[in-house]
Design a protein around this nucleic acid. Sequence first.
DNA 1: ATAAACCTTGGAGTACACCCTAAGGTCAAG
DNA 2: CTTGACCTTAGGGTGTACTCCAAGGTTTAT
Lengths: 137, 137
Amino acid sequence: MKIGEFARQLGVSTDTLRYYEKHGLLTPSSRSEVGYRFYSDADYKQMSFILRAKNVGFSLSEIKELLQIKFHKNQHSCHEVKAMTLQKRDLVAARIAELTRFYDSLSLLADKCCGGEEPAENCSILTTLEDIDGLTQ
Amino acid sequence: MKIGEFARQLGVSTDTLRYYEKHGLLTPSSRSEVGYRFYSDADYKQMSFILRAKNVGFSLSEIKELLQIKFHKNQHSCHEVKAMTLQKRDLVAARIAELTRFYDSLSLLADKCCGGEEPAENCSILTTLEDIDGLTQ
DNA sequence: ATAAACCTTGGAGTACACCCTAAGGTCAAG
DNA sequence: CTTGACCTTAGGGTGTACTCCAAGGTTTAT
Ligand SMILES: [Zn+2]
Ligand SMILES: [Zn+2]
Ligand SMILES: [Zn+2]
Ligand SMILES: [Zn+2]
């Protein structure tokens, strides 16, 4: 399958596929005589793996690591894979915590503001940000 | 106050202050004869505003908007300010929802894996990512 | 024969929020 | 008068995951 059809079937752009190839995530299994990329069923499976891993939150470099493990399964342990997964989960959790603080602060701010059409002279959002904060910690 | 002392008091780098100046967030109120930046009390207050806004999750360009409103309070309404705040909050909420999906998927994956020291031949994290997913919708 | 649709490469651009460097000028202390 | 700490500018680099472009070669249909 040439790159265009392959991209269409997977719902990604051809640029993305060339990008992934350049970054060692998916090298098409063959090329035509004039250099056209040809993708096989195995390539389809690998790309699906990549997309699923992306869907659960792994970054491309993490996915590359996972692929290395997948290619040399006997040289890596379950422990290693689970550790990566848990570490990623913890990172995600930390980011969620930070964003939740943002969310709470923004809610507090919004609640204080009347939201009317009058000039923002005494807008409590602005004054709260100006004054000593009743926001942080 | 010169830039170094000002930066120290606010817990930011001098590079950050020059960056903010270049991007229209905070222009020091004066310069010495040879061009040294001098920051005033008003500058301190504005920088505090910026840092507080950052702390609740606003991006620098959003903060720039907020500053524009703050400078011309009578030309803007409470409604406008509240709308910005709510819109930002919704964006944050959407991002939290996405990360929560990641978190849940990663937890599911991790739970299935034994985490032992044996080779990853049959690691359920890898097989789950390989096979038709029990993850996504 | 020619146009449309495909493919190739290399390289530049995007957003965000800085950080770092070089090359040089300024200022206070000893 | 020199040392060290400070300041200036312009410009490049970081990471992430692409996206877009130019300039050209190939394939397929009419
Ligand atoms: Zn109001
Ligand atoms: Zn208001
Ligand atoms: Zn296991
Ligand atoms: Zn496992």
